[in-house]
Nucleic acid binder design. Structure first.
Lengths: 362, 362
DNA sequence: CAAGGCTTCATAATCGTTTAGGTAAGTAAC
DNA sequence: GTTACTTACCTAAACGATTATGAAGCCTTG
């Protein structure tokens, strides 16, 4: 039991390794009788192929990597679920590589991770963060296709595929809703630009504020709850008054902000309205139920995986025909998924007393 | 740039492949001058080793796998973080394999996953669920060490290492607290026995109920929020009255239960007290703040990884000395981590009107 | 019945590393 | 000056699969 090679099977069954290989891989050119004998012997011997040997010899790989910087964000679970769903039928292995240490993104870890992925000659990469230009280039020079999710390609690789929320329009929707409430004084608590979704989220909100004649303050914090808490605390102390509404750039920041508001007994939405950017399971159960954007991460994951699979397939096809094996990126690979605003209570809806200028509840 | 082999480096630098290999791997027996020349050439050529070739040739592998059945549980993130933390220094690759499809555990997927792990000749496995006996045996026959986290080893592998919460005592603590509140009518909403933590959680609660003269009903649901919701709804309809307290076996079930209570406008803790089994970031912000057990998943992950690393190391040592390479499992590898009860409001603490027999708030 | 086409299987090269088993030169010991 | 030991390097055999090339046997077919 265990630890037998194809040679062992070959000897035991009295057929050449060629025949055994063909039989096991389900190829044609082997008689049904031989195939059955091979399969039986292999089972009896407990033969399990050595993947390293297969990969070394074979041209095409069958693993794709997902690069994350776990901001302990649970949207990541949905994303993975979508990716797995799309890739399961094709029977590919998905490995996830985290480039965060203690919850914080680490540049050297990203370098090491990319190095590793190339060492393993991955078939493709899905990245949840904008890679460093060097790394994008490196992957490109090894003809490994990359799809960005919820992040934009780096400067030197603008044509790389990406699947993101339509953050700009999402922000416009948020802004519209805030304006409907009559809020004029907005505070956006946001993560650093390293996470490139920030750009469109902020841009949309700036535009919305302009359109509706509202004042928008952008407050940057590190991308975790603890930083969000202290950054916001410092800001509120400095400002000496509450804005009408707080918009949290993502869930870790939302968490930090809500903790602070609770500590200071600031009630939502009476004293300040709150809107978040990521839907999550507990949102309807919080106090008050939170109004958030639904990013549909699962859909994003699914699309990203499908896009990647398509590229890899095309790549294999091209190589078979002797053409360049570098991945072909079509413009339509850059997709945006519309988000919807899930309106609950924290924005002030269904609440009589609202922060700022009181107005009719929409 | 890209795609050069060690042979290319060897030719370019004018040294044998042996020397190049030695130089790159940092082994002794190469002059400093040669090493520098090799390194420089390798860098210029953009040489990146082929891991498949390395793994094929090398005796020892350097990847460990984590098997999960994503119950979309966010405790999983903490667990991974702990594992990564413990394994990062040793520079090992961690791959996670999910054996759930659409959030539900799938037996055939488990089989396929184990097959895959053996194909890749993994150095070790950390499993968050009790594996099927066949699979445990299979891994054992390939001398691949397995550590179970938050789950017990299967029947045929009782001696396998495991790191779990001390669920029995945790349940006693919960029971004690409920008794302090004067609750006599307990309802435990719990997942199927496939997740083996159920056994001790239930056993502890049964014992606590006996000690304190309370009535305990155990209600089993599938391991997801939707099932929990419908199972609980059906039960409440049948029972026609509310228990004094609802204990949710884990977070997905808690989520489903809370949704139902909210739908039916049952208020916590006035109408029914609620206690959960997994601490999570949003717990203090819910309405009301939830009383839950803190499992300390990160600590569990860390310990599991350390245990696994120790076993693999010992295994390598034993093999070097010509002894059996099958992993050695010491009894003390079975560890339990104490959980603490984080008391907030949902249990009735700090609330005047309590469900059931009113008593002094402890 | 010769020629050609299938079907079924075998031989052996190949993938890109690591490493056991050398060798040649230089140094130290006696 | 021989012997013994180091140091720095090389040659070539693995590792365990896939697959290009081809051969033997049998079946058609004109």
């Amino acid at each position: 039991m265990g630890r037998s090679t194809m040679r062992d099977v070959s000897r035991a069954v009295g057929l050449s390794m060629f025949t055994v290989s063909q039989a096991l891989s389900g190829a044609v050119g082997v008689s049904e009788e031989s195939r059955q004998r091979v399969l039986k012997t292999a089972r009896e011997l407990g033969y399990i192929p050595n993947r390293a040997a297969q990969e070394l010899r074979r041209a095409n790989r069958d693993s794709v990597a997902v690069i994350t910087a776990s901001t302990s964000n649970s949207y990541y679970l949905d994303l993975m679920s979508g990716i797995q769903q799309a890739l399961r039928p094709s029977n590919w292995t998905v490995v996830v590589g985290d480039v965060a240490v203690d919850g914080a993104y680490d540049e050297r870890l990203e370098d090491r991770m990319v190095q590793r992925l190339i060492e393993s000659r991955m078939a493709g990469v899905i990245s949840t963060l904008t890679l460093r230009p060097e790394n994008a280039e490196l992957l490109a020079s090894w003809d490994i296709p990359v799809v960005f999710v919820d992040s934009s390609p780096p400067e030197n690789a603008k044509n790389f595929p990406s699947v993101t929320t339509d953050n700009y329009n999402a922000s416009l929707v948020v802004g519209q809703h805030l304006a409907d409430h009559g809020y004029k004084d907005w505070l956006l608590l946001v993560y650093p630009a390293k996470w490139s979704t920030r750009f469109d989220r902020e841009r949309g909100l700036v535009e919305a504020a302009r359109r509706h004649g509202a004042e928008l303050v952008v407050l940057e914090s590190e991308n975790d709850a603890v930083s969000a808490h202290s950054t916001l605390a410092a800001y509120l102390d400095r400002a000496g008054r509450l804005p009408h509404v707080l918009i949290a750039g993502n869930n870790p920041l939302l968490l930090g902000a809500l903790k602070l508001l609770r500590e200071r007994s600031i009630t939502i939405p009476a004293d300040i309205a709150v809107v978040g950017y990521d839907e999550f399971a507990w949102a309807p159960l919080l106090d008050p139920p939170l109004t958030v954007l639904n990013e549909r991460s699962e859909e994003i994951g699914r699309r990203a995986a499908q896009t990647l699979a398509g590229i890899i397939e095309a790549q294999a096809e091209a190589e078979k025909q002797g053409q360049s094996k570098s991945p072909l990126y079509r413009p339509e690979y850059q997709q945006q998924v519309a988000a919807e605003l899930v309106i609950r209570k924290s924005c002030g809806c269904g609440h009589a007393h609202q922060p700022g200028i009181p107005k009719v509840t929409p």
